[in-house]
Amino acid sequence: MEVVLEAIEGAWQLLLGRDEVTYEVLWRSLRISLTATAIALALGLPVGVGLAIGRFPGRRTLYTLANTGMGLPPIVVGLVVTVLLWRSGPLGDLGLLYTPTAMVTAQAAIATPVVTALSAAALQQVDEEFRLQMRGIGASRLRSLWEVGREARLPLLAVAMAGFGAAISEVGAALMVGGNLQGETRVLTTAAVLEASRGRFAAALAFGFVLLVVALAVNLALTLLQQRGGTQGR
């Protein structure tokens, strides 16, 4: 238990910015995972919309793929991205391995199926009658889509949070493609792994607590944003 108390104290110090190096790790984590989430939303949302209200051949297969992809182990994504980015790999020319860009790529690959499958599910929740109504009152396709999106904005926000959560909490891919380089690709999760393997469990846990606080802060910000949007709409 002593370890936990020490960890809480360590996390507190880290959050107050007393340790510059670790503070920088925090910002890098946020930057990488928020970028990855944005990419995942840009790629996954349109597909999710298509899956929810479109009718096209292969839709079910795609849906199944997206659902399966939610369980994609980060280490597998990490391995695939690593092999692609190896000097001897097809994208070796780019010299991207062990860079934040590589980590964004891997995390986006992890978060995209999550966003796709969950947004499809969220939009399907919207009453079919509501959609028909929209068309009935003569709303354009785009307009009715917008209204459906508004109706489902709460679950869609949860989709963004789930995507961000998947990105910032994964460690297998970040370690593999990032290499955990100090000052370059070290993020909260890989720093925690390093501290644990060094036998400094309190420090490892401290990074874990900071990760929780960061996730909490981001989710809180998104929720506030959503609620403001909600009252304006009414």
Binding site: A196, S197, R200, F201
Partner: peptide, 8 residues
Amino acid sequence: QGMGATLQ
């Protein structure tokens, strides 16, 4: 596992 975890 790694050394730290093994010691634990």
